[in-house]
């Protein structure tokens, strides 16, 4: 492996050797200066609008206002990008990636400063629909543990539904792809039920399942099942005959043909299905939670909306963005690991 990589990338690495590049310090500074400006804006500009009450909350043994918490978050971001910057400084490839993201990160810092100004300090944005960044963070100060509880509920619901859906989807996909009889009888059912948005089954699921949790999990299973099953089936069906023939002349029997030829061949398509299902299941998760769950981020949004606590709605949206990004990233990691044989093949 390493030898091949040497032959293809050897020339590139020889031209510019890795090592610390002094000019890169400016790139790191450029990245974090936006966030520093946001901190400065928060600390130096006085509260102009009189509608905002700055309350003091107790977090553990620390007392903090929303502006304190907002500054901490900004400091945390600065420390994070500083850390990534130092980590990236010694490798040319990493430096390149970091450098390409610097303008965007700078702009985020400036945008936060403006948003803070318009949303909190001046309150020119229509209230209470568009709170400032500090206002959103206030939601975590008020009921951080409650948001965490709801987040864990969502995560649990998602994990159960999604994993079960993937297992059932891959299973049925293999059966459909391998047995023509199953294809004949099951694929029309799959094609018809697959286009129905899973949440349409909600009333039915709520009466059929003993708990709201299992009803919602069922919906996520359904919405995951369809893309995973149909793409698995098509991956299995598209396995070239030559691969099976090669396996048979090598002494492979049916189980070998299924598990060591058809399924590995279908793996890229299976992952396409899983990634599609991943996106579908986020939607289903939140909609199901908004329609009669005792917890979850969707439930939290609904409950907060009733009290016009839009800053809490935004807080839940921020948590979703982070949570779903992390899940998508994790799926991507698993995919990269399973499909490592494709590396360098598709580009």
């Amino acid at each position: 492996m390493s030898e091949i990589e040497k032959t293809t990338e050897g020339i590139k690495t020889k031209e510019k050797p890795d090592g610390f590049d002094k000019k890169f310090i400016w790139v790191i500074l450029f990245t974090i200066v936006g966030f520093a400006a946001a901190i400065a804006a928060n600390l130096l500009i006085p509260q102009i609008s009189e509608d905002v009450k700055i309350e003091i909350y107790q977090v553990g043994s620390i007392y903090a206002t929303m502006n304190n918490a907002y500054t901490w978050v900004l400091i945390a971001l600065i420390v994070l990008y500083l850390g990534i910057g130092i980590f990236s400084a010694f490798k040319k490839e990493r430096r390149k990636k970091y450098r390409s993201r610097a303008p965007f990160r700078f702009a985020v810092g400036i945008a936060l400063a403006l948003w803070d100004l318009l949303g909190t300090k001046l309150q020119t944005l229509p209230q209470p629909f568009f709170p400032g960044p500090a206002g959103i963070i206030e939601a975590f100060l008020i009921e951080g543990d409650y948001i965490l509880q709801n987040t864990l509920y969502s995560l649990r619901l998602f994990s159960v539904g999604f994993l079960l859906g993937v297992v059932v989807g891959v299973g049925t996909g293999i059966l459909i792809g391998w047995f023509p009889k199953v294809y004949y009888w099951v694929s029309p059912v799959l094609n018809i039920t697959g286009v129905i948005p899973a949440v349409a089954w909600m009333p039915f699921a709520l009466t059929l399942f003993p708990t709201p949790f299992s009803a919602a999990a069922f919906l996520i299973v359904i919405c995951t099942w369809f893309p995973v099953a149909s793409l698995t089936a098509s991956g299995i069906k598209s396995t070239p005959k030559a691969k099976f023939e090669a396996a048979r002349t090598l002494g492979g029997k049916t189980p070998y043909l299924v598990f060591h030829v058809a399924i590995p061949h279908a793996m890229p398509q299976i992952f396409t299905g899983i990634e599609t299902a991943n996106a579908f299941s986020f939607t289903t998760l939140v909609m199901a939670e908004m329609m009669g769950q005792p917890g979850g981020l969707g439930y939290y949004i609904n409950a907060s909306k009733v009290w016009s606590a839009y800053y809490k709605v935004f807080a839940a949206i921020v948590v979703m963005a982070v949570l779903f990004s992390l899940i998508t990233w994790a799926v991507g990691l698993v995919k990269a690991r399973v499909l490592r044989w494709q590396r360098g093949l598709l580009k």
Partner: peptide, 26 residues
């Protein structure tokens, strides 16, 4: 043993695992 024209190797297996495929299948 049969050697095909081209493209009969298992793309998802390394060189050594392709060679070992027959032993594993049996």
């Amino acid at each position: 043993g049969y050697v095909f024209q081209q493209g009969s190797l298992f793309e998802w297996l390394t060189v050594q695992n392709n060679i070992a495929a027959g032993l594993k299948a049996r």
